[in-house]
Design a protein around this nucleic acid. Structure first.
Length: 170
DNA sequence: ATGCATGAGAA
DNA sequence: TCTCATGCATA
């Protein structure tokens, strides 16, 4: 196409390279300082106001995030590293006794996932009518299928995408 | 470590 | 409705 996106392919890859380097060193330092992913997330409250979950810290270390998000978190984590170096704040864990129980995660069968994956590869963003039909054929709630596609699209945008499903054996 | 989910904000 | 950042629940 006529898109001029080939502007700075090198700048982009070095950007990613920097993130990979930082993420790797971050994990090493984190462990040297005696912190768990959960501990870092909690300690962030001191440096930037709000804490982060173990999930997010884990995803940063593995760069399973969008480039933008990863860069933002890098600055925050770099700051924390600086603080943790100077004075070790208590690496306390947090308790949450929320009343709100989230809906139980629905488990999508491996077979259905293969169909969803195949559909996605053909069309990343099926029209609502198509999703409706797909959900019906899979025997899954429409919102589950809709969310699956949303999450699948997000995964495509990650720096380090997770491996996709192995091909279905027919 | 990762799968499915939530919610705020954009379009 | 989608994107995007984020996390509870679970493998």
């Amino acid at each position: 196409t006529g898109l001029s996106i080939g502007a700075e392919p090198k700048a982009l890859s070095s950007e990613v390279q920097d993130l990979e380097d930082f993420a790797r060193e971050f994990k090493i330092r984190r462990i040297q300082l005696g912190y768990t992913q959960t501990g870092v997330g909690a300690a962030l409250a001191t440096v930037q106001g709000s804490p982060l979950s173990q999930t997010t810290v884990c995803r940063f270390e593995n760069l399973q995030l969008s480039l933008c998000n990863a860069c933002r978190l890098r600055d925050i984590l770099a700051q924390w590293l600086h603080h943790a170096d100077i004075n070790r704040d208590g690496l306390g864990e947090v308790h949450h006794e929320n009343e709100w129980k989230r809906k139980r995660r629905t488990s999508i069968s491996i077979q259905a996932k293969h169909i969803l994956e195949a559909t996605f590869l053909r069309q990343a963003r099926p029209p609502p009518a198509h999703l409706q039909a797909l959900a019906l054929s899979l025997g899954l709630p429409h919102h589950v299928v809709r969310v699956w596609f949303c999450n699948r699209r997000q995964r495509e945008k990650r720096i380090h995408s997770q491996p996709s499903l192995p091909p279905a054996l027919d």
